[in-house]
């Protein structure tokens, strides 16, 4: 399987994961969406030098990984393209902020190093929480939750269609690269001279196909509103889960839990 095939397969396996019959998957999408947004908001609100406070925020993704039985290793593998990019955020901080803010033994730590690490961890935690939401909730249900909170339907449909379009684009890319490889045996990758025409072809074909898909939707009664059949009633657990975690997250944000725990052992 080539890389494009692998990418399509990754999307499919993520969708399969999101449809599994697990406790976390069965939670109302709105409660998971709220909790994720709240977690992200709180995580990014940590001060730039508060590394120890931020580290304990890993508790939430760790707990979701445990209860959802999702593999952390798989998550890292799936996010291997994104994580280095998000980790690169703040990579220049050590060059601009050389004030010593911490001394560990004889090692002096610059503020820039600390803020870089904080930024990296913030990025990794927020991406992981987004991954956990997608891996436990089908995209249709996330969009349904967005509609409940009155996000305009144009925006929600665009999100859904972009998600679908990614697969269409990848499929077209796979067809084109396969056709190319069959007529260019022994060649590694695609020769730079044909990049332009190949990309153009891919764009035109995927636009054609996207247009046909849209026609197909119109012919089956699509009126701008995506009806996913995801209507679900809120159960007590749908309130309990976000309330419980909301309280824990607030505690982690307001109190220096890592320092308090450290004080117990020192």
């Amino acid at each position: 399987m080539n890389k494009i095939g692998q990418a399509i397969s990754e999307i499919q396996s993520l969708e399969t994961l999101s449809k599994e019959d697990r406790w976390v998957n069965r939670l109302h999408p709105l409660s998971k969406l709220f909790l994720t947004v709240f977690y992200i908001a709180v995580t990014v609100s940590f001060p730039k030098y508060d590394l120890s406070g931020l580290l304990v925020m890993a508790l939430y993704p760790a707990a979701v990984f445990l209860v959802s039985e999702l593999s952390f290793k798989d998550a890292l593998r799936r996010l291997r393209v994104v994580l280095p990019l998000v980790a690169a955020v703040g990579i220049l901080n050590p060059f601009f902020d050389r004030e010593v803010v911490l001394t560990i033994g004889s090692v002096q730590v610059w503020g820039g190093v600390l803020s870089m690490l904080t930024l990296m961890i913030k990025a990794v935690l927020t991406v992981l929480s987004g991954y956990l939401l997608i891996a436990t909730t089908p995209i249709e249900k996330i969009c349904y939750a967005l509609r409940i909170i009155h996000i305009p339907k144009v925006f929600v449909v665009v999100v859904l269609l972009i998600y679908r379009y990614v697969t269409v684009l990848l499929q077209e890319a796979r067809r084109i690269t396969q056709a190319y490889a069959l007529r260019a045996p022994g060649q590694k990758g695609v020769h730079y001279k044909v990049w332009g025409s190949l990309l153009g072809q891919m764009l035109l074909r995927s636009m054609d196909r996207a247009n046909d898909l849209y026609d197909s939707m119109l012919l089956r009664g699509f009126d701008g509103e995506f009806h996913t059949g995801a209507k679900e009633k809120l159960k007590p657990s749908d309130f309990l889960w976000p309330v419980l975690w909301g309280a824990i997250i607030i505690l982690l944000r307001l109190f220096p839990v890592a320092e308090l725990l450290g004080g117990l052992f020192l």
Partner: peptide
Amino acid sequence: REKIGYVFQDSDSQLF
């Protein structure tokens, strides 16, 4: 359109 069912030539263009 409610009265007509249309099957496309290319099924990949129909299923999404």
